[in-house]
Simulated assay, not measured.
Amino acid sequence: MMVKLKKIVLASNNAGKLKEFSSLFEPLGIELIPQSQLGISEAAEPYPTFVENALAKARHASSASGLPALADDSGICVHALNGEPGVHSARYAEDEHGNRSDQQNNQKVISALSLLAQADGLVDRSAHYVAVLVLVRHADDPQPLIAEANWSGLIVEQPQGEHGFGYDPHFWLAEQQMTVAQLPPDLKNHLSHRGQAFRELIRKLSSPEFS
């Protein structure tokens, strides 16, 4: 049972992700250290798939720190937009100066769907969040642990809710009849793509094959 991992570097500087993952790892007695605390730069994310980018980030953080590293690559795929923003979710509306914000990213998605609605009438607003987690025990780990999950919802025009980050205020959950940003944080951690992927990661960590 996953007793060897006491410290893991989180290959992200995203404050929202750090908060979510720290709350998930805390009951396991594992300290999560953000890479910025160790002076580790962000890794390049040049790949077209979530898993390739997550693996690149995990290896980069592990190589620089000498510790096991966890990376996630996550985003939202809007079906009517052919899966965009996808791996570009965090920087979907980034300008030529590298400026970006959640509000700008959300507005770009809403505007794109509005244009489709004007052209075709009704538009498919279904989407899903994707989370891919990659854990490497060391930078050259030949068998990294990979866990993946999706979370389905609908894109709504008007933001609702004060919690969460990213696209959460516009991501409507039919079963709960609210956006992700309206969910209590504990419930979000249980239902979310990251929560689902995290439980899968823990299952793999607990297997006899992992040591």
Rank of each mutant, 00 (worst) to 15 (best):
V51M: 04
E200D: 13
A43M: 01
S65L: 04
I146S: 04
N82Q: 14
K188T: 08
A71H: 03
S36V: 07
L205I: 12
L67I: 05
L24W: 05
A69P: 00
L24T: 04
I33K: 07
P85C: 06
V136T: 02
L5S: 10
G195F: 07
L183P: 08
P142Y: 02
P144F: 08
S207E: 15
Y47C: 07
S41K: 15
S23D: 14
V51T: 09
V109G: 12
N82P: 01
A43L: 01
L205H: 03
P184W: 08
T49K: 09
H163V: 10
Y167E: 13
S206A: 15
A58I: 01
Q104P: 00
K108D: 11
S192T: 05
V156N: 01
P208G: 08
V9E: 00
L116V: 05
Q143E: 14
A54S: 08
L173H: 13
F165P: 02
V109C: 11
A61I: 02
T49N: 05
A127E: 05
D102I: 10
L55G: 02
H138E: 10
V132N: 13
K4Q: 14
L173Q: 13
G29C: 08
L113G: 12
K204I: 08
Q196T: 06
N13V: 11
S36C: 10
L135G: 03
P185G: 09
D72A: 00
K17C: 02
I33Q: 07
P27A: 08
E200I: 13
I40S: 00
I30Q: 12
R59Y: 00
R125I: 06
M1K: 10
A80E: 03
H88R: 15
A11H: 03
G166Y: 13
I110N: 09
H163F: 15
N189V: 05
E162M: 11
E31N: 04
A181T: 10
Q182V: 02
E148K: 12
A197E: 00
G29W: 07
A119N: 14
H79N: 15
P185F: 07
V3C: 12
L38Q: 02
T49W: 03
G153D: 01
S65R: 09
K6V: 07
G16T: 07
G98I: 06
S12N: 02
H190W: 02
D186A: 14
E42K: 08
G98R: 11
D73G: 06
Q107D: 13
H138I: 01
N189T: 02
Q35R: 12
V180T: 13
G164R: 11
R203Q: 12
W172E: 00
G39I: 04
S41T: 15
E175C: 06
I146F: 09
G164N: 11
T49R: 11
N82K: 15
W151V: 01
A93C: 10
